[in-house]
Design a binder for these strands. Structure first.
Length: 823
RNA sequence: GCCGAAGUGGCGGAAUUGGAAGACGCGCUGGACUCAAAAUCCAGUGGGGCUCUGCCCCGUGCGGGUUCGAUCCCCGCCUUCGGCACCA
């Protein structure tokens, strides 16, 4: 053994930079596309982590995300797979634009500076990425194809334009999608959102609502809670549409309800303030002024006020009455803010006895409450609506439907209405169409022209990309900054040759990230967005890894895109991501890391102090990858210490030279147990913390006997195994030690396979219980019969102490584990 | 309010199919090495008790249940976190 003073110290930075250079020179992780792609190739796999937004600095969430993917990719590749693992940048979007406005300069310059920085940091982490496939969504060679896809959607009628009440952020001066409004506030800047009516572009995602639900069956493994969140977001509910009629005005108003069984309990009728019939109802009546004032006021109210559940519902009577089609009763028509224009038909029948909201409203405005469903025991709670269901509930006061159960009545009443043309079964969705236009500069231009003669005209494919023009002012003033680029704006119509203007809105960045995983497959293709043969070879993604914050939007949008592209025959599969893993967040000092709170642990600093390997190891050792976990400064010290321990062991063992390991030696067996554990944990259980513990244990075991010359062979084998198993986590150190131990390129080395024969034990420790309590343990040979095991157990003095003098009523034997005496 | 996930030593966590609770790391304690310290190596470390080479009791948020046996399954609570929240 070398004296400690002579032992070479572990210099993480030197070793890491050296090996990063080797990987780059040897193109270690480049995976070219096959010349004859075979879609059925079982030995290929696509490991993908979510596209980073290049904010200028890598954060610990990225480190965790990409290290998870890295470990998986290494193990898969060494297990004989062709592994596609690309990287890119979600570079369009508000933050870069805001930074440019703040600091002066061009958003492109800001974005590209940030990309350069984050790329550098990614290289420094040593992630095994195929950099030949790098893409950035802001690059014309990428967004050209984003535009091309938009045009395909447009052709299919899946991209359309309409005026719509939209969420308007007064600070960012732009329209927000519903999803970007959090409790009435802008997701990005926190400002209170206002309502505005504007011409907007939408994707018709609602046309795919059912398929987004049904085709969840095609997914191999997604976290149940993510699927639940998507189901809730889509919010499919089955009910019926029922037509009410205002005789005096000759007007029919349909409503959507999930409770047609309560139709006889309707005591009033409500229209949303924005409902188009409101003005007609009150025109020329003495209610007109009051109602119109109320409607204007309610409609203009910001989402935050309207969504506040604490707020009392308000409304106003219109003076009109509408006929309940089931019994010809006249119901007063109200306009109230608790009815939403965007859901159902913007009108409801109100059944205060059986709906909480209607009940609350009826109490406030002293409207009648009529009970039509009662539980079997007839007990109804005072002062509340009966909304629940009980097994034997029955309808009352509902003409020929009385005495039916709710379920029976639902069908019967709708059938009765349908036969008279007054109703039909219908489905409602919470999901709205995807509002994709943004009145901002830094996004993908929408490739559309407006011609005075031809109207809306798509830009011909041959004219793509529609490049972002240069402008002087990025700050939007209520219209897109693109509108200021006069030369760019004016163009000629490709159909009639007349004057035309360009669309000045840009796309939501979720559009860019809804197809990037396809582009990676064929990233350098200048003739098409992708070659279908190549896309179908790699895709769908076998393992997708990312933050749970994208559980709804990004994942839903990407699924939608793939379904549409599949329908067009451009892709052969219907779901983009077969397996999804959502990682937990990293907290520090008791809170989510954030710049504003100042509790950020910088990956750069940690890499500088401990090296990339220690950071990679610790980020996965902290706990289960799906859990939120707390960063502990002392924790990374521990990992750094372990790497030092492995390093010293490796050098010592290398120094001694090769020695043959006797098969079946204890450390050889221990090494095989570690191999089995690490492989199983990563590949089957998707558990990344316990494999590290297993390797640490192996190293600890080696340390206890490493100086025994008799055991040099098994020590060497166990050390080599530890180095090989830790390679996915700490690739630099592992590579260096592997070379010093006389090996070649470890990243090309096959992943170790456990020898089942060596996992077999000759003896095992039999646990002996009396009445379910452990009383003793004894080492016994494997393969003893049950009576033999029981006999061995009964001999034990401590067992005798608890059994003697008592009657053994039962003997339980779990082969290979334990016996239990019940006395 | 509705839906979902979780609760284990001083801390992060482990226990894979109902079979030894606390692997591994951190922290702490003791020892070795050193003039000393750091680093390193070795050992101990859930709580309580006793007749202390050992043995007994308690212990996985709380209260019940099923079982020879429960961190794991069932019922009812509590707490924390996440999602949705006038969606008719």
């Amino acid at each position: 053994m070398l004296p400690e003073t002579v032992m070479e110290r572990y210099e993480a930075e030197t070793i890491e930079l050296m090996w990063q250079g080797v990987w780059e020179r040897e193109r270690a992780f480049s995976v070219p596309n096959p010349t004859a792609p075979d879609e059925a190739d079982e030995r290929r796999t696509y490991v993908l982590e979510m596209l980073p937004y290049p904010s200028g600095e890598l954060h610990m969430g990225h480190v965790k995300n990409y290290t998870l993917g890295d470990v998986l990719a290494h193990v898969r590749r060494r297990s004989g797979y062709r592994v596609l693992r690309p990287m890119g940048y979600d570079a369009f979007g508000l933050p870069a634009e805001n930074a440019a406005i703040r600091e002066g300069g061009h958003p492109r310059v800001v974005a590209e500076r940030n990309i350069a920085a984050i790329r550098e940091q990614m290289h420094r982490m040593g992630w095994a990425i195929d950099w030949d496939r790098e893409v950035s969504t802001h690059d014309p060679s990428y967004y050209r194809w984003t535009q091309w896809i938009f045009l395909r959607f447009f052709e299919q009628g899946l991209a359309y334009r309409r005026e719509a009440p939209v969420n308007w952020c007064p600070v960012d001066q732009t329209v927000l999608a519903n999803e970007q409004v959090i409790e009435g506030h802008c997701e990005r800047c926190g400002a209170e959102v206002e309502m505005k009516r504007l011409e907007q572009w939408f994707f018709r995602i609602t046309a795919y609502a059912d398929r987004l639900l049904e085709e969840m069956d095609l997914l191999e493994s997604w976290p149940e809670h993510v699927l639940t969140m998507q189901r809730n977001w889509i919010g499919r509910s089955e009910g019926s549409e029922i037509v009410f009629r205002i005789e005096e005005l000759d007007v029919d108003i349909p409503v959507f309800t999930t409770r047609p069984d309560t139709l006889f309990g309707a005591t009033y009728f409500v229209l949303a303030p924005e409902h188009e019939l409101v003005p007609k109802l009150v025109e020329g009546t003495h209610h007109e002024q009051q109602v119109m004032e109320y409607a204007r006021h309610a409609a203009a109210r910001s989402a935050v006020e309207r969504a506040d559940p604490e707020k009392e519902k308000t409304g106003v009577f219109t003076g009109r009455f509408i006929t309940n089609p089931v019994n010809d009763e006249l119901l007063p028509i109200w306009v109230a803010d608790y009815v939403l224009m965007e859901y159902g038909t913007g009108a409801i029948m109100a059944v205060p006895a059986h709906d909480d909201r209607d009940y609350e409203f009826a109490r406030r405005y002293e409207l009648p409450v009529k009970v039509v469903v009662v539980p079997a025991d007839g007990e109804l709670e005072e002062g509340a609506a009966y909304v629940g269901h009980s097994e034997d509930e029955r309808l009352v006061d509902s003409a020929q439907f009385s005495a039916m159960s709710s379920a029976e009545a639902k069908t019967a009443i709708v059938e009765w209405l349908e036969s008279r043309g007054l109703g039909r079964p219908a489905v409602g969705y919470r999901l709205r169409d995807w509002l994709l236009s943004r009145q901002r500069y830094w996004g993908c231009p929408i490739p559309i022209l407006y011609c005075d003669g031809c109207g809306i005209v798509p830009v011909p494919d041959a004219d793509l990309p529609v490049l972002l023009p240069e402008v002087d002012e990025y700050l939007p003033k209520g219209r897109s900054p693109l509108a200021a680029a006069e030369d760019w704006l004016r163009t000629t119509c490709p159909r009639c040759g007349g004057d035309a203007r360009r669309e000045t809105d840009t796309m939501d960045t979720f559009v860019d990230s809804s197809w990037y995983f396809i582009r990676y497959c064929d990233a350098r293709n200048d003739d098409a967005a992708w070659d279908p043969a190549i896309a179908n070879y790699w895709l769908p993604v076998n393992q997708y890894i990312g933050g749970v914050e994208h559980a709804i939007l990004h994942l839903l949008y990407a699924r939608f895109f793939v379904k549409v592209l599949n329908d067009m025959g451009l892709l052969a599969f219907r779901e983009p991501f077969l397996r999804l893993f959502t990682q937990g967040m990293i907290h520090y000092l008791g809170a989510k890391m954030s710049k504003t709170k100042g509790n950020v642990v910088s990956p750069d600093e940690m890499v500088e102090r401990y090296g990339a390997d220690a950071v990679r190891l610790y980020i996965l050792y902290m706990g289960p990858a799906e859990d939120d976990i707390e960063w502990q400064d002392a924790g990374i010290e521990g990992m750094s210490r372990f790497l030092g321990r492995l390093w010293r062991l490796g050098l010592e063992v290398a120094e001694r030279g090769p020695v043959e390991a006797p098969s079946g030696a204890p450390l050889v067996r221990r090494a095989h147990e570690a191999i089995a554990k690490v492989g199983d944990d990563i590949l089957r259980r998707f558990q990344f913390n316990t494999p590290i513990a297993a390797v640490i244990e192996l190293v600890n075991d080696v340390y206890l006997v490493k100086d025994d010359p008799e055991r040099a062979g098994e020590v060497r084998f166990a050390t080599e195994t530890a180095v090989s198993l830790i390679q996915p986590y700490a690739p630099h150190l592992a590579e260096e030690l592997w070379e010093r131990l006389g090996g070649g390129r470890l990243w090309k080395e096959p992943w170790p396979q456990a020898d089942p024969a060596l996992l077999e034990r000759e003896t095992f420790e039999l646990v002996v219980q009396v009445n379910g309590r452990v009383r003793d343990k004894v080492e016994v040979p494997v393969g003893l019969s049950e009576p033999e095991l029981l006999a061995r157990a009964k001999e034990l003095p401590r067992v005798r102490a608890h059994v003697d003098g008592k009657e053994i009523r039962r003997e339980i034997v779990v082969p290979g584990k334990l016996v239990n005496f019940v006395v």
